[in-house]
Write a protein that binds this DNA or RNA. Structure first.
Lengths: 224, 224
DNA sequence: TTATAAATTTAGCCTTAACTAAATTTATGA
DNA sequence: TCATAAATTTAGTTAAGGCTAAATTTATAA
């Protein structure tokens, strides 16, 4: 069952991973959301979803959406483990910058063998989180469900620690790291006026302004 | 010109690399040799060769064979550099065994970015040869032309040092390393009787018997 | 030199994973 | 409730890169 992933096409693996990510709310994933997220047209998504359903990796209720089966989720988590381990390895061992590791990992995740995966995990001492703060699933497909709040929802006066940032956009990551918003950074919210669309923050002794949109990609642990 | 390789399909890259390897004699490469080496049918090779010719990466004289253009050779050498750097990195840094690195590198070579290539080369201190003794092309596409003789051609009494072994077969590599025939190993040829089809060797203080076929995959520097 | 064998190419088909346009189903607002 | 809009699926193409069978070219041996 474990080598199931190996015989799947890269495209099929990408669909499984994307369905997993989009299903975070528990609800079935719509064809449109899936297509948009993968950058393909809706009929392409429909076609692949039917293939995945035929392989018992997903359940497809026509016009209603897709859900992963346990087998499909298993493979999605394997891909996510690969992705996050590779990001961590590239950043920590090879010194690849924070904002570039996502795109690299996107390619590498599909060709990583179990053996090299194990060697990387060992070299990193079995890390629990990747450089952006996302939890790395275990070999057995267990994943921590960290539940941090978006920085965008914090009130003025809140003192928080950054725990995770979304890693999809290299440009956003570059900006966040310039402002000092990286995992473990302590932040004080000086002013939070949703109407203005910006937050005033104090990070590492500096006053900073951050838009609400990027603040929705930063997840924090609240202290007060 | 350097990002040409990135826009080429994995299949096209594999054909270029294989043509380069088969052309070692200087003569044009036949369709059959190319097809056999890649494990595809002859018409598939013909079709790809025509595509490569249309891209000015190869010259195709119908019924006569293929040759790489300088641009095609450039890309082939880039793939070979990737392949051999990855083999070296996997073996030396991640501790992947000698006989497995070839198959891993075969997949990795196509997705390695210039940046990660550079980081790996640096981590390895810009190695000149891979773990099997094959020369690693430079970033500029220069490659050393080591010219060692096959162990199979040595006479009784020859004292030699192993410089390179062919890496295509994991099984062969496992056997050779059991016998101690790895790069840098000093070897004395005790008995060489082509009629028998075996060589008697002394390697690391042990008497060993090796068939002529595997001995053709071991290349040595002769001392006497 | 010529018949036959071997190698190569052409022709036509298959699969995967995209696409657009059209049909169908579900949701929504008057 | 019913017409219309939005989402989804179906139908039919396309491009890669394989394949087999048939045609063509080149090599070989009588």
């Amino acid at each position: 069952m474990d080598d199931m992933a190996l015989t799947l096409s890269t495209a099929a693996q990408d669909y499984l991973k994307t369905i997993y990510h989009l299903a975070r709310g528990g609800a079935p994933v719509t064809t449109q959301a899936l297509a948009d997220s993968l950058g393909v047209a809706a009929p392409s998504a429909t076609a692949m979803v039917k293939k995945l359903a035929a392989l018992n990796l997903a359940r497809h209720e026509p016009y209603r959406g897709v859900e992963l089966t346990p087998a499909g989720e298993r493979i999605a988590l394997e891909m996510i483990r690969h992705h996050r381990l590779i990001e961590t390895y590239l950043a920590e061992v090879l010194g690849v910058s924070w904002d570039k590791v996502h795109d690299e990992a996107e390619r590498w995740e599909h060709i990583l063998s179990e053996e090299v995966e194990a060697k990387m995990a060992e070299a990193l001492n079995h890390p629990s989180h990747d450089p952006h703060g996302a939890p790395i699933p275990t070999v057995d497909g267990e994943i921590a469900h960290d539940d941090w709040a978006p920085l965008a929802q914090m009130q003025a006066g809140a003192r928080v620690t950054v725990r995770r940032v979304e890693d999809e956009s290299a440009e956003l990551l570059r900006h966040l790291s310039e402002v000092g918003l990286v995992p473990s950074a302590d932040v004080e919210v000086l002013r939070a006026t949703p109407a203005e669309g910006v937050l005033q923050l104090r990070v590492a002794g500096e006053n900073r302004t951050l838009g609400i949109a990027p603040a929705r990609s930063v997840f924090v642990e609240q202290h007060s």
